[in-house]
């Protein structure tokens, strides 16, 4: 699914985050990446998502090399093949839950009715069935993250990128959310790259990698 070769990235200011990073994620594989704050986990995710460009090296997703694509093409790639879950939920406050979940579909120009119908189904699947007309401000943090997960998967992407999804949640809710997350991605058969500093979250992954200055190191 995802192949990273000899990736190099330096931040503005000169500090080099990594110079020769390699990573391979097979289809359906769940990879967790841990590391200290400031080591560049989020930057790596941005590079994988096509939101940032590496100084050198290559990122290939499902056969497509990112470094060869223009901004619009990268955008379309994200739209069609990648799902995102963020630490800060990032659910649009002025749309109701069903519309929020349906967003990736209507971005793909799926018909509105069909998109909302599928979103409603998704809401059922994550345990928030019947609440499609509620607004985000009526939900707790855990529920909001579940919405984010539903949104990340509704368009059946091949790759999910998650950035500290449980960072804003208490341990109990975090566990529930992760359980749901794993269920959903397994069901969808998607590959996952999860960035976290929570060992509990990393534990659910197939592989755990540690990001250091010298690159990715397999853990245990």
């Amino acid at each position: 699914m995802l192949t990273v070769t000899s990736l190099r990235k330096a931040v503005p200011g000169g500090r080099v985050l990594f110079q020769d990073l390699n990573l391979t994620v097979r289809n359906g594989q769940f990879v967790a990446i841990t590391g200290e704050s400031g080591v560049g986990k989020s930057t790596l995710l941005n590079l994988l998502a096509g939101l940032d460009r590496a100084d050198a090296g290559s990122v290939v997703i499902d056969g497509t090399a990112l470094e060869l694509l223009q901004d619009d093409e990268l955008t379309r790639l994200r739209r069609d093949r990648i799902g995102f879950v963020f630490q800060a939920f990032h659910v649009l406050p002025h749309l109701d839950l069903a519309h929020n979940v349906a967003l990736p579909l209507v971005l793909q120009k799926v018909d509105a009715h069909e998109a909302l119908a599928r979103a409603t189904g998704m809401l059922e699947a994550i345990g928030l069935g019947g609440r499609g007309a509620d607004y985000p401000r009526q939900l707790s943090g855990g529920e909001l993250q579940r919405i984010a997960i539903a949104r990340a998967l509704i368009h059946r992407p091949g790759l999910i990128l998650a950035d500290e999804p449980t960072g804003n949640l208490d341990p109990e809710t975090a566990a529930k959310v992760m359980a749901l997350f794993v269920d959903q991605v397994r069901e969808a058969g998607a590959s996952v790259v999860l960035v976290t500093h929570s060992p509990a979250s990393a534990a659910v992954a197939d592989r755990v990698l540690h990001l250091t200055r010298d690159g990715l190191v397999e853990h245990g």
């Binding site: 998502a49 939101l51 901004d71 619009d72 955008t75 379309r76 994200r78 739209r79 069609d80 995102f84 990032h90 649009l92 967003l103 990736p104 971005l107 793909q108 949104r151």
Partner: peptide, 15 residues
């Protein structure tokens, strides 16, 4: 801006 950022990430083209 943050909302726009989100939807750009989700796949809305610049134009």
């Amino acid at each position: 801006r943050p909302q726009f950022a989100l939807i750009r990430v989700l796949g809305l083209e610049r134009r």
